[in-house]
Design a protein around this nucleic acid. Sequence first.
DNA 1: GTCCTGATCCTCT
DNA 2: GAGGATCAGGACG
Length: 212
Amino acid sequence: MPRAFYARPTVVAALDLLGKVLAHETPEGVAAGKIVEVEAYLETDPASHAFRGKTQRTKILWGKPGFAYVYLNYGMYYCLNIATEKSGVAGCVLIRAIEPVTGLPLMQARRKTTNLLNLTSGPGKVTQALGITVEQYGADMTRGNLVVFGSEENSEIVVTTRIGLSKAEKAPLRFFLKGNRFVSHPNRATRFFEGSLEEVRERLQLELETIR
DNA sequence: GTCCTGATCCTCT
DNA sequence: GAGGATCAGGACG
């Protein structure tokens, strides 16, 4: 997807990322999957790494959109985010789950499991399966080896709270494809509402006025 | 299925 | 020096 795709409000970009294909090419081969679950992190959001202001690690979130923000979580798992919003505004989308499309044997080898449903159903699993590490920090995702490209699919979207936050966060900023078996923790979070892309976007627009 | 724990290390205070 | 945007595996029902 082009830079302009990411240079939009984080929630809008996050919703549009659902159904797109995330691909990573390495010397080992290509691994790719359809994005089925994401979370939005906003500048004015206590749960966002951007909330406490720019640091060496997080300054990229204020930079140009479409670049990868990768960080090590809990000392052992990497999380992949894509920077959003125009330059000067922080925001990113966390890729939480994909549905395997290409490079299944490679992903299974990296994950050390053949169980399809356990391959990419979580942010740490996605990066492991695709071979994404801190090396991809700052990668331009509008071109190169780590990219997102379009697909036609359009299904119902479910809106919930985000997963695993210690700070009490009740914002409707996690989105996933309804009924998709590759979503992580389908029932753990508080469910707000669901609907088509258009319906969800409209309803969130109302909610967002109180968030932003 | 649910709940709980341990692993492990970078980042910011 | 504390605290994570997590995961796997075990206990238990």
